[in-house]
């Protein structure tokens, strides 16, 4: 008897369970589809938003537009009746602040030149507004009352805000500009740099064409970017060398680690103690480091590079993962083709 009763109970609970299960899976499924749809929606929204707003052309167009509006307003000052002058200048200041906020939000994807020039424009605009204001609303001789008015018009707060933003912008600015030492935008020059200028610094070489760079010393890191037809010689680099987007160059380099991205048709005379890697590159020819200059031995000691280990002929090609076949993107420069001695 008791057994039968038990069975009934189990039956009931089993049925109940199945029902519950069904409910739950249905609910889960429904929620999942809702969530997926939401995610999709957000994603596309974000994409639209971004591509539209994070481009330099969008920035310059909007910036020029806003600037023109402010200047127009400024010119119209003379037609504004005296009683509304304060409101007029308040709204001018507000649009100026909005423009500045727009610039500081955009600094992340703008080049430093664009940031600087737009900051200059902002500054001159601010000066113009101030001058106009001073001439249109002359300060009273007894300034207490006027200042109080300034307070109550709510101008102090935005001014503080602006200061905060300026600070933020300048941090970001320095973040992107503060390279210790570098050479860029030169054509057909020969540059000779000695240790005192580059020792333990982050050195950058960018946008050079047909130049010869002789770095007789030990930088901490070396960034090489967008070089064409150049020859670069360097003493032992403390840590890493990064070569990006170069073509038809010769590099004579000693370092701990070397990375080459999107570089083609270059010869590299290399001393690397850990490992060199290449990515999206082709036509690279490798030979052992053979640069000599006065003070090289000393620089080696300072840089703590181990002269005994040199993995110059063992590059990892991230676009060639087959281990049984040699990567077609790089080769070892044969003895006959190597330059034996470099004229210093």
């Amino acid at each position: 008897m008791a057994g039968v009763f038990d069975d009934v109970v189990t039956c009931k609970t089993a049925a109940e369970n199945i029902r519950l299960q069904k409910q739950i899976t249905e609910k889960l499924y429904q929620r999942d589809t809702e969530r997926l749809a939401e995610v999709d929606r957000k994603k596309s929204e974000r994409l639209d938003h971004r591509s539209e707003k994070e481009s330099a052309s969008y920035f310059s167009a909007t910036f020029a537009n806003e600037r023109a509006i402010i200047e127009k307003k400024l010119e119209d000052t003379n037609t504004v009746p005296n009683s509304q002058l304060i409101d007029h200048f308040d709204s001018l200041l507000l649009s100026w602040q909005n423009l500045q906020r727009f610039v500081s939000h955009s600094t992340l994807f703008l080049s430093s030149y664009e940031v600087r020039s737009s900051m200059e424009i902002l500054n001159s605009l601010q000066k113009k507004i101030k001058m106009k204001r001073d001439s249109a609303i002359p300060k009273k001789k007894f300034a207490f009352k006027g200042q109080k008015k300034f307070d109550t018009s709510g101008n102090i707060k935005p001014a503080e805000l602006v200061e905060g933003q300026l600070k933020k912008t300048s941090i970001q600015d320095t973040a992107f500009q503060a390279m210790d030492c570098g050479f860029s935008d030169r054509i057909g020059e020969t540059l000779h740099v000695d240790n005192s200028e580059i020792f333990e610094k982050d050195v950058s070489l960018s946008r050079l064409k047909d130049c010869i760079m002789k770095l007789h010393g030990s930088p901490n890191t070396l960034h090489i970017d967008k070089l064409q037809g150049c020859k670069v010689f360097t003493g032992p680099v403390f840590t890493s060398v990064f070569i990006d987007s170069c073509k038809d160059c010769t590099f004579v380099i000693a370092c701990q680690q070397l990375r080459m991205h999107t570089t083609s048709d270059c010869d590299i005379y290399l001393h690397v103690t850990s490992r060199a890697i290449v990515e999206d590159s082709k036509g690279l020819r490798i030979a052992p480091y053979n640069y000599r200059y006065d003070g090289l031995d000393e620089d080696y000691k300072k840089s703590r590079l181990n002269r005994e280990t040199n993995n110059w002929d063992d590059l990892d090609d991230f676009n060639w993962l087959a281990s049984d076949k040699h990567s077609p993107n790089w080769s070892v420069l044969s003895d006959e083709q190597r330059v034996k001695t470099w004229e210093v």
Binding site: Q257, R275, I277
Partner: peptide, 8 residues
Amino acid sequence: ISLISPTL
């Protein structure tokens, strides 16, 4: 950590 090369 003295001999670490880029992770392949």
